[in-house]
């Protein structure tokens, strides 16, 4: 009104959050643990997107990686082992206004939480799911997890693991209605950040598996890929993860891959000779269960009562 709006600084938007506004309690991960890199990537993303801390939730299960919510000064839910995803789905089903991150580990997601994982991917609710995969149970000190490599010795398998390891990307790509599947590494922060950012921007369940170093128990698992960038295969595409030239230069071994090509994505996911990073698959058109569950929000108590009355009337004979 009246040309001059002297009301402007009363607009709620005018708040600016800095990196430290997202930092929670003191971080207790081991020095050199890959989780640090993921934490700072998420904090940087929150700052860059100016996510309101009180409108952001980080949900986790149990594990070293699952201590993540404590280190963010947002809302957090450090839940039960394996149950991060059902809790996150519950939150999302009635809170379309929040930004929800799920942080889970290879034990949390791929062992005890497998059933939830499969159905959460099918539900395709808008969640940013970060699987911090160190190929081991870290918190409980060195037990074989589903993603532990074949032959790897641990407390539970002192003579080495008996099975071929589970491939979370291949599993996720096999689930109907999967809509965003990507893989990245903790030791390349720009790629890590760009991948989490793309996942956050995707509307639907975005599944990101992060190869995460555990210097205590799986120091050597990723050593080859870390020392020799030639062991990493970078998937590139105009519709893929956007990267700077400087980052591209770090990975001489590249493959153009169209993330809408599911068959090729599955093929790439199964390659064992290289550590493949980038966006495997994206389908923006998948049906989202949260669009159904969030219906009728914002109704006044009166309207809710009326709806209940009507439903009750339907039972009258």
């Amino acid at each position: 009104m009246f040309e001059l709006n002297d009301d402007w600084d009363l607009e709620p938007k005018s708040r600016v959050c800095l990196l430290e506004d997202y930092a929670g309690s003191e971080v207790r991960w081991c020095p050199g643990c890959g989780d640090h890199a993921v934490l700072s990537a998420v904090q940087r993303l929150a700052r860059d997107k100016q996510l309101a801390p009180e409108k952001t939730v980080v949900v986790s299960g149990i594990g070293c990686s699952s201590r993540f919510p404590h280190y963010m000064s947002t809302y957090g839910f450090h839940g039960l082992h394996g149950r991060a995803l059902p809790v996150a789905c519950g939150i999302r089903s009635r809170r379309p206004d929040l930004d929800i991150f799920v942080v889970t580990g290879d034990g949390d997601c791929c062992a005890i939480g497998t059933a939830h994982w499969i159905h959460a991917i099918r539900y395709n609710m808008d969640l940013t799911i970060l699987l911090l995969d160190n190929n081991i149970y870290g918190l409980t000190k060195n037990q074989t997890s589903p993603t532990t490599p074949f032959g790897w010795r641990s407390q539970t398998h002192p003579r080495g693991s008996f099975f071929a390891s589970l491939n979370p990307i291949a599993v996720t790509l096999g689930i109907q209605n999967a809509s965003f599947v990507a893989q990245t590494i903790d030791w390349c922060p720009p790629h890590l950040y760009a991948t989490i950012r793309a996942a956050h921007e995707h509307k639907g369940a975005s599944f990101v598996r992060i190869f995460q170093r555990c210097p205590h128990f799986t120091e050597d698992v990723f050593a080859q890929a870390r020392e020799d960038p030639g062991r990493v295969l970078l998937m590139t595409h105009a519709q893929g993860i956007p990267l700077d030239a400087a980052v591209l230069k770090m990975f001489p071994n590249r493959a153009g891959h169209d993330p809408s090509n599911l068959a090729e994505a599955r093929e790439l996911a199964c390659r064992e000779d290289v550590c493949t990073i980038g966006l495997f698959y994206r389908n923006p058109g998948g049906s989202r269960y949260d669009e159904v569950t969030a219906q009728g929000l914002g109704k006044t108590p009166g309207e809710k009562l009326a709806a209940i009355e009507m439903a009750l009337d339907g039972f009258m004979v």
Binding site: P31, G34, A37
Partner: peptide, 12 residues
């Protein structure tokens, strides 16, 4: 700097 993982190691 853009490659730093913020692990605190050098800091320590």
């Amino acid at each position: 700097s853009f490659l730093c993982t913020s692990c605190n190691d050098c800091f320590k």
